[in-house]
């Protein structure tokens, strides 16, 4: 499954890019994030609870971020294991473009989903994933704006 979306944030690109690399900001922004630990500069471990329709899954996730092409491009790949509920793997490319209104984030997310989630949630996964992505950036913006004040 591929999700493509864009979101405008009224802050400058460097601030936004830095925030994407800040575990504390990520923890507050990721919907259902219960725990997030930084293992190395580029490796994170997170526990995220997500509801796909009737299935509530707690993902133990390993995420690797790649800020090397910043601040124009932020990349991440990751895997999330929810035990018998299923398994998610994928990655995201977030392009950051400066404009008059701040920064335009364009993201392309690739997700493969296995297990019960894919079976029961098949028809719900795309809409749920879109909702989670939207929620993430809404939270992200809120956290950043709060910091500015």
């Amino acid at each position: 499954m591929v999700l493509e979306e864009e979101v405008q944030i009224p802050l400058d690109r460097n601030t936004v890019f830095q925030a994407l690399n800040d575990p504390e900001v990520l923890k507050q922004s990721i919907p259902g994030c219960e725990e997030l630990k930084q293992i190395t500069d580029t490796e994170l471990e997170a526990t995220v609870v997500i509801k796909f329709g009737p299935v509530k899954a707690s993902f133990n996730s390993n995420v690797e971020v790649d800020p090397s092409q910043g601040p124009e491009l932020f990349k991440l790949t990751g895997k999330g294991d929810a035990g018998v509920a299923g398994f998610v793997s994928g990655g995201a490319d977030v392009h950051l473009d400066e404009n008059d209104a701040g920064t335009l984030l364009r993201y392309v997310v690739n997700i493969d989903i296995s297990g019960k989630l894919a079976q029961v949630g098949g028809r719900l996964i795309e809409s749920t994933s879109k909702r989670i992505a939207k929620k993430f950036f809404a939270n992200f913006e809120e956290v950043l704006l709060k910091r500015q004040t």
Binding site: D112, S114, K116, A118, Q119, V120, G122, R123
Partner: peptide, 14 residues
């Protein structure tokens, strides 16, 4: 099945 081998019709919803 999808290309990952997930059963897409595993409930009576589908």
């Amino acid at each position: 099945y999808d290309e990952l081998g997930n059963v897409k019709t595993g409930t009576l919803m589908d």
